[in-house]
Every structure is written in structure tokens, then in C-alpha cells.
Design a protein around this nucleic acid. Structure first.
Lengths: 157, 157
DNA sequence: TATTGTTATACTCTATAACTATA
DNA sequence: TATAGTTATAGAGTATAACAATA
């Protein structure tokens, strides 16, 4: 399975190969975070506001029970805190800790490096072209769910 | 999560969105095949030669026990046959049946349509550009494993 | 009565190990 | 002794259902 002569092989094959390579290196960067890529996404979402657990679960396309387990680990690692929601005593707001914010900042820097590494084989102009074309396609195809979920789907396929 | 302002959001987000969309529609096309995308890949590989089960498992990056289950289903559906390998009585060669060959032909046609549908938002010249850039990147990044496996990885991420 | 979060249970998928038959 | 294929068992990950607290 070097260079495909077949069918699906075309766009699908290339798309999956590149995505797979991206996932592999991203997983390495995020291997130290509880929940891996998911944990990172929780941190990123928590930085943007103070979402409740349910809001977080919906945003990331996860079951709320999975979110409970995931947050248990992130809390244990001291990256986030659960605080009572003053407006609704049933809900918990998720806040980044100082350590969580520092961790997130570091991860974001390393993820940018990963992208640059992945695109390195292309010329600068080509990298921009690819980014632009993919971004345009991505906004038009818009599938329900999230990018993280893609990893699940790809594996199942 | 409409248009991302964040980080990973850039290339990774677009790449995963497009891949996810591709997986979704491919899964619909292959939903009737035992094993889904995997079953299709077995059919495609069986058409190219007469691989043994083990060769097939290695090519698709699957455990040989999984291959047994997968082939059981494909045989039940009448798409492939197990035949004794004349050169090694331990091994079984996997052959496409007439129905399997017809099924494969139909699937390939529909998968080509899926690709065209996915790229429809782009101009003809842009589609060619994207295909070319992705193909070039795919051949350079070359991760061990197969494209089908990507679906597994994406989900896990 | 409905909803947030938690916990316990069940299910799916995959890997691991053990077994048969060949080599 | 090693390998191809099968089968049984155990494990990780997820979803389902039941529960407590609150709305």
C-alpha cells in the first residue's frame, strides 16, 4: 500500500493519510493530558468562558457521563476546578486553574509547531493554498459534532 | 463552534471537519456491507489477487482474529469465498464471488460520486489543486497503518 | 415534571491467549 | 518449533438507566 491505483484511494486515501499523520503527532503532544485530545479541548473551551459540564459536553459532542469521568481526571491533575453555578445550584461551572492555563498555553504553542511540521513538505504558497481550500470546504460541509469526534469515526470506518 | 478563532482550530480543525464529512457519507454508502468500510476494503483487496486471510489482515492493519469475524460475515452475505490454498493447507485464499464483484463495482461507482459531492463547493481548478496538494502531502507523511485505520484514530482523539 | 450531575450496569469492540491443523 | 486460522476470554471505551439534588 504505497501509492494507490484504486478508486477510493484518490481523495479519500490522501485525506485519511494526512489526517492520520496529524492525529498521530497531536496525540504525542497531548499524551500527558488526561483524556488526550479531549482533555485539551475541554481546557480550550474552559478558557473561552465558564461553561457548565452539560454545555461542555454538548459543545464537544460527548455524552454527559463521559464528561463527568473526563473532568474527574482533569480536576485530579489540578488543571480545572468545579465551582457551583450561582444562577443554578444543580450546575457546576468549569474554571481553569493557574496550572491549567499555563498547560493550555504550552500545548497551543506545541500544536502550532505540529501543524508547521506536517505542512513542511509543501512550499509556503502551497501551504497557504491548502489551508485556504480546506478551510473553505470545512465551513461548507459542516457536519454536526466536532473535530475530535472525527478520530472516533475514522477508527470505526 | 461555527468558525473557529482558536489555535488547533486552524489546519487541524479544517482537516478533521472535511475528513469527518467524508467518513460520514462514505459510511452511508457502505452501511449495507458487513464491516462497513473494512468490508469494502477486503472486497477491493480480494479483487486485486487471491490473498490469504493473514496477508489481508496485514494489508489492512487488522488483527487476524478480527479478520476471521469479518470474513465470516462477508461469506454469509455471499460476497467472498474461502478456498484452500493449494500451496499451503493451513492457509485459505479469499476469492470474490460473482455477487461480490458486482457489489464492489457498484460501491466504487458510488464512492466516486461521494468524492465529487464533497468537493462540489470548490471550482474545478481548485478541486484539482486540493487533490494534488493532499496527494503530495500524503505520500510524504506516510504513516504506518492504513487509511481505514484513520477512522479509528480520529474517534479516539 | 424536567434538568444537572453522578453512579452502576450493560454493551461493543478489540486485543490476548489457548487450541487445532498443518509446515 | 513455528505458522494459519479459529475460538474463548478479558479488557477498554462507550452508552443506558437509575438515582439525588434542584429547578
Amino acid at each position: 500500500m504505497t501509492t494507490p491505483q484504486r478508486v477510493e484511494a484518490d481523495l479519500g486515501w490522501a485525506l485519511h493519510q494526512v489526517t492520520r499523520a496529524h492525529i498521530k503527532i497531536v496525540e504525542q503532544v497531548l499524551s500527558g493530558i488526561p483524556g488526550g485530545p479531549r482533555g485539551y479541548q475541554v481546557l480550550a473551551a474552559a478558557e473561552e468562558g465558564t461553561p457548565t459540564q452539560l454545555a461542555l459536553a454538548r459543545k464537544l459532542g460527548l455524552d454527559r457521563t463521559v464528561m463527568t469521568y473526563l473532568l474527574d481526571e482533569l480536576v485530579t491533575e489540578g488543571l480545572v476546578e468545579r465551582r457551583p453555578d450561582p444562577a443554578d445550584r444543580r450546575a457546576r461551572q468549569i474554571h481553569l486553574t493557574v496550572a491549567g492555563r499555563a498547560q493550555l498555553c504550552d500545548l497551543e504553542r506545541r500544536l502550532r509547531e505540529v501543524e508547521e511540521h506536517l505542512l513542511a513538505p509543501l512550499e509556503a504558497a502551497e501551504r497557504d493554498q491548502l489551508r485556504e481550500l480546506l478551510a473553505r470546504l470545512a465551513t461548507t460541509v459542516q457536519v454536526e459534532g466536532n473535530a475530535c469526534q472525527v478520530a472516533e469515526d475514522i477508527k470505526r470506518a
